[in-house]
């Protein structure tokens, strides 16, 4: 067993698998970090991943155009982001409830679309090659996009005035308001951006990895992304690292012949680790102070 483990650890597929598995959890996590830093929680990531995948696969399948398919995926994210933003930011609605609703809705819509468009309940046929995302030197451009997004998001939050204002809104909206910052607009935009990232995660699944839509396409990745946000302490760079870590374990569980380590244990790791981190057992974490609270001017 020792030698076989070693053998697995030396294989390239494990590491390529890590890169591929990290993308659909890390992109949504990065987006959610931006959203949450502004004080809004979107637990509808799972649903947005599905809708992003669904829209891109649908358009890709019927038009054969990669560009249109990508745009469709992004548009799905924009739409949900706007919906979530209007309800939770401008109307002061309950952020958690909206997110739950989006998740339920998206799953249902996915299956219905599968059935109505392709007559199946399980998975769509493959999209035409013309709509698939081509690999660059054997690596998906989405991998590059993920790394770049993380770095850019970090740069945005830590180095730009937009980032400073966004964080101020998430920490103390009253103070931000008193400093002349538009709390509502900032949160709204952050919510839409976060949703687009989640949709991009779905687009990767639909146009790149699977090249099709399956009913359980998201498979809990939206929730893993939520866990990663806490695990990486709301830092996009750490989100990349935790994406690599979680991706590695998932890749390992796929590579190791079953029976050596129970899969359930590997799958549990991100959630258990996040729970422990959130409870402050390893390091101190702190969520943005105003997270989840609708802002109302007196």
């Amino acid at each position: 067993m020792d030698t076989s483990m070693l053998f697995i650890l030396l294989q390239a597929p494990l590491y390529l698998g890590t890169l591929r598995l990290m993308v659909p959890i890390t992109l949504p996590a990065i987006g959610e970090i931006i959203t949450e830093r502004s004080g809004v929680v979107n637990i509808g990531l799972e649903g947005i991943i599905m809708l992003g995948a669904l829209a891109s696969v649908y358009v890709g399948y019927f038009t054969g155009s990669l560009l249109l398919a990508l745009l469709a995926g992004i548009l799905a994210g924009v739409c949900v982001g706007i919906l979530h933003g209007i309800i939770s930011v401008y109307l002061g609605g309950d952020q958690i409830i909206v997110g739950v609703g989006v998740n339920v809705f998206a799953y249902g819509l996915g299956v219905i679309t599968l059935y109505l468009s392709w007559g199946t309940f399980a998975n769509s046929p493959l999209i035409p090659d013309s709509a698939r995302v081509p690999d660059l030197h054997g690596i998906s451009p989405f991998v590059v996009l993920t790394f770049m997004s993380g770095v850019t998001a970090w740069y945005l939050l830590e180095r730009t005035s937009i980032g400073l204002r966004l964080k101020a809104v998430g920490e103390n909206p009253k103070a931000a308001d008193a400093a002349g910052i538009n709390v509502f607009r900032t949160r709204f935009v952050a919510t839409v951006i976060g949703a687009v990232f989640a949709a991009l995660g779905g687009t990767f699944l639909g146009l790149d990895w699977l090249a099709s839509y399956t009913r359980d396409i998201s498979a809990g990745r939206g929730f893993i992304a939520l866990a990663m946000v806490v695990f990486s302490k709301w830092n996009p760079i750490l989100a990349i690292l935790s994406g690599l870590l979680f991706g590695f374990f998932f890749a390992l569980s796929l590579t190791i012949p079953s029976g050596i380590i129970p899969d359930q244990l590997v799958w549990s790791l991100p959630y258990a680790a996040t729970l422990l981190v959130a409870a402050g057992f390893f390091t101190k974490t702190r969520a943005p102070a105003a997270i989840g609270k609708p802002y109302r001017r007196e």
Binding site: I87, V104, G108, I112
Partner: peptide, 26 residues
């Protein structure tokens, strides 16, 4: 027929509407 999941779509939309506070006032 249509998939059972139509029920989920309906349910999801209901939840989203429920999240809007003071809908009547709105």
């Amino acid at each position: 027929g249509v998939p059972l999941e139509l029920g989920l779509v309906v349910q999801g939309i209901i939840i989203i509407f429920i999240s809007i506070p003071e809908m009547l006032d709105l």
